[in-house]
Structures are given as C-alpha cells and as structure tokens.
Write a protein that binds this DNA or RNA. Structure first.
Length: 374
DNA sequence: GCGGATCAC
DNA sequence: TATGGTGATCCGC
C-alpha cells in the first residue's frame, strides 16, 4: 500500500478535493467553469458546519457500502460468474424481444425556466448573472450565472461568494404555473395525452402527429419549440428518440434552445448508448454512479452489458434488469394510465433545538399546514 | 411493515 | 448567519 506523500490520492494539502458535491457535475452552460475553484470555495464555506458533518457521515456510509460490495465481488467463484452470465444471456434475449422502435418520443425541457420567466417580467435582468431563490437556497440560475459555477440546489450564500454581482430574485410559483400552463397548451396540440414531468418538462408521443402530417420527429420538434416561443417568449430544448429514457438524454445535448434527434435504428441507438456515462441516465444519481464505478468499474452504459454477470450477482433482480436494459438502450414506449397521488406530506427546516415545547409547537404548526393542504 | 436512503424536479 | 420541499420507490431488517 502506498499512502506516502507522493501518492496522487493524498489530498491532505488540498482537502476540498475529497469533498464531493453535486455542483461540479456536468450541467448545461457550465462547460468553461473552473471546477477546482468552485470545489475549493464550496468546501471553504462548508467545512465544520452541521450540514458538512452530515455529508461526511453519509460519505462514510457510502464507502462502507462500496467495501461490502467489493468483498462480495471477490468471493464470487468462476462457476458463479459462468452461471450468472447464462442469466444475463437469457435476459438479453428477453429484453431484446421487447425492443420497440415504432414510436417517436419527444422530451421538452424549458431552458432555465424560473430564471427565464423572471427575466420576461423584468427585462432589465437580461444579460446579468441572476438566480431565483435566496441566500439559503437557489432554485435556478440563468446562463450568465452558470459561467461562475452558480447552479440550482446551491446555497445562495456560496453562490454570492462565487459571483459577487449575482442578483437574487425570490421564487414566485404563481408566475411559473401561469407560464407552465401556456407551454402545456402547446404540448397538447401535438399529444393530448402528454406526460408532464414537472412545471418545466414533458414527454410527448409524437408518433401519430408525425404520421398524419408526414413530418419527421426533428421537424415536429422545430415547430413545437417555435410555437412555445411565440406563445410564451421562452426558449426550450428537445430530444427525439424511440423511447422516453433516450429522449430525456437527448434533450440535454444541445441545451439551451436546441434539439437532438436519435434515429430509430438499433445500431444507431447502440452506438449512442455505448459511450454514454451512466450518470446521464435518469434514475442513476450520485450514489449509484459511485457504487457502480468504484465497486465494479462501470462508467459507461456499454459496460452495464459487458459486466452484466456482476450486476446480477450483486444486485436485486429488478435493479440488475434496469441496469441491463439501460445498457441495451431500452426504455418505456407506452403512455401510462394517469395515476392518483399516493401520499401527501409537509416538512420544514428549522434551527436545531432540544426544547421540548418548541418542538411540539413546530409539530403543531406543520400539522396545521398539512391539514390545510389536505 | 417500517424507516432510511436514493432520486428527480 | 445561512445548505429546500414534495412525492415516489427501493432495500434491508
């Protein structure tokens, strides 16, 4: 073992390098950002805080999980692996049989939605770094702010350190809902059963409208984006592909105000998916990325198939099935029945306290808010 | 069945 | 000074 001073993994002199946040992830508009500087400032502003301590606790837990998985991996015999490979080969055939290249899905994603809406109602913000939110939390940053490393989910007081001229605009959901409704009227013209993901994104099955009008998916995407712009003054990006999982990945490629079409052709899909980092896939977050990379050496979607036997050996059937289908570029192609909500909740963050009376009054307050919502 | 963890927005 | 809120799902116990 080498943990001497010369080791490249020794970062005792640069402690921020081991403080992993989501803020240095690739995100549209952040290509030229000095990641090292952002990471250092986030670390300096964070270290010692209760938040930071909790992050350290979670980090340790994750390391433990990865170690456990490595142990299980090392214990696998070659006959185990041969058997799991048979499972993989069978599942590949079964999954491949479900591949449906007959549908055309479009994923629309509004560009820096809250920030763009605020700029519409106050054009003097145009061209200036701006964030929607406050000093404790930022919901969205415009592209000028992203150049400084400022982004959604970042605490405002850190963002201000990165970009001292940053303008803060408080959130106003009434406004965003209004504009969201305008965009949804446009979406409805292309797919009356479109799936709204949130205020600012949606999935549309445009198979029918393409066929009826004799237009390609790319042409429909062009027209839809122009229509959204003329109805709202806002820009959006789109991805077109054979299923929702791929369409979602595609809408991010030419952001902002752009689109990307992936042809409905098996070999095109396989080429596209093979080099794709697993973190680009919806459902694979920071933790799963870390586990798959550090325990199994999986970084790209292609490796999900190549190391399929390990996945079936170490994960549950349903997780392994999901990973394998990702590696094959498969995804949902049906329009699901609209489902009713399964839960309702209310929560609030407040200063730490051991005062029993204070805790009970907080509890009563939150229960009251929940009751109101219900 | 429950609580914690993960994920997305 | 200061690190969100809502809903869903999965996993281990």
């Amino acid at each position: 073992m080498d943990d001497g001073e010369s080791s490249s993994t020794n970062n005792s002199s640069r402690p921020w390098e081991s403080y992993n946040t989501v803020f240095t992830n690739a995100k549209a508009g952040m290509e030229g950002v000095d990641k090292e500087k952002v990471q250092r400032i986030v670390y300096e502003m964070s270290k010692g805080s209760k938040y930071f301590q909790n992050e350290e606790r979670k980090e340790a837990l994750m390391k433990q999980k990865i170690e456990h998985m490595r142990d299980r991996c090392a214990k696998l015999s070659s006959s185990d692996l041969t058997n799991y490979q048979k499972v993989v080969d069978r599942r590949i055939l079964e999954l491949e049989a479900t591949r449906d290249l007959s549908k055309i899905w479009l994923h629309v994603d509004m560009d820096a939605f809250y920030a763009a809406v605020e700029t519409l109602s106050n054009p003097s913000l145009k061209g200036k770094p701006m964030a929607v939110g406050g000093l404790s939390m930022i919901s969205t940053a415009n592209y000028e702010a992203r150049k400084f490393g400022v982004r959604a989910a970042m605490p405002g007081f850190i963002a201000r350190k990165l970009c001292p001229d940053l303008i803060f605009v408080p959130v106003d959901f009434t406004k965003y809902t209004h504009y969201s409704d305008l965009t949804r009227k446009v979406f409805g013209n292309y797919d009356p059963n479109f799936i709204a993901g949130s205020l600012d994104e949606a999935y549309l099955d445009i198979t029918e409208v393409c066929r009826e009008r004799g237009l390609s998916g790319g042409e429909i995407a062009d027209e839809l984006r122009a229509s959204v712009h003329s109805e709202t003054g806002l820009t959006c990006s789109a991805g077109v592909a054979a299923n929702r999982l791929l369409a979602k990945v595609c809408s991010d490629i030419n952001k902002p105000n752009g689109q990307f079409v992936l042809q409905n052709d098996r070999s095109t899909v396989m080429t596209f998916i093979s080099s794709l980092p697993i973190r680009k896939i919806g459902g694979i977050g920071k933790v799963t990325e870390h586990i798959l990379k550090d325990a199994l050496g999986i970084k790209t979607c292609e490796e999900m198939v190549l190391k399929g036997s390990l996945l079936y050996a170490l994960f549950t059937q349903s997780s392994a099935d999901f990973f394998l289908s990702v590696g094959l570029g498969l995804g949902k192609t049906d329009t699901p029945q609209a489902r009713s909500r399964k839960s309702i909740s209310s929560e609030r963050t407040f200063a730490a306290t051991g005062e029993e009376r204070l805790l009970y009054s907080k509890l009563a307050e939150i229960a009251e808010m929940l009751s109101h919502d219900m």
